[in-house]
Amino acid sequence: MSDRQKKTFVITRFDPDKDEVPKTQTYEIPVRPDWKVLDALNFIKDEVDGTLSHRWSCRMAVCGSCGMMVNGEPKLTCKTALSDYGDTVEVGPLSNFPVIRDLVVELEGFMEKFKAVKPWILRAKEKAPEEGVYRQSPAELEAFKQFSMCINCMLCYAACPVVGNEPDYLGPAAIALGHRYNLDSRDEGDAERNQVFREEGGVYSCSYANECSEVCPKNVDPAAAINQAKFLAVVDWAKSFVSPRSRKK
């Protein structure tokens, strides 16, 4: 324990059966220099207070479970080094989401938005597996690859000022996902998704704050996806007046 120093953690606690509003609880624990914020939470859960609830799993920044507010900023706690912080670290549930318990937030709203953008390949005619793969050049793959890297950690929703104002806004991750399929050379569903993008709460609700891309731990750049989607959705809409065929599609 000699390599350990003490740090104080101020953690938001909330049990809907007991508390009217969230409160904070303070824990002082010994930490190792290479620990992430998540390691400290797990130490508290295991050794100090078994009633603390938080979500986590892979601890390697790919499952997307452990997004929380750390000193007021949305962070993936398994990727956030304690050494970047001072003696006191505040940890709370992600902003802009209803809180279920302690650091656990409600994801059902997001799951509906996720489904709304039809995140699957849409084609008029599908191939059987026996007919082999679709050809896709490395350049065609590159066109959407970045937007396929989202781990659904929800940091962008916690950072987005529009999500806070407008709960029905599709939000950065869902739009980036829909846009990813629109850009996929194997997909033909862009007209359907653009329809969704143009509806109320769609891409045009975005107010260009760019916070989503600032906080994204995987460099997905959802703000770029939203801006591209705004353009493509309006072009698609304009086209529907010129060519009746594209309207039907």
């Binding site: 490395p138 793959l141 690859k145």
Partner: peptide, 22 residues
Amino acid sequence: PLELTRLEHWGCPWSRNDDGSV
């Protein structure tokens, strides 16, 4: 091979050769 091809049809971003094959 059928299962991995099916996943390709469902959108899995498999890395590609220059000719567009997997």
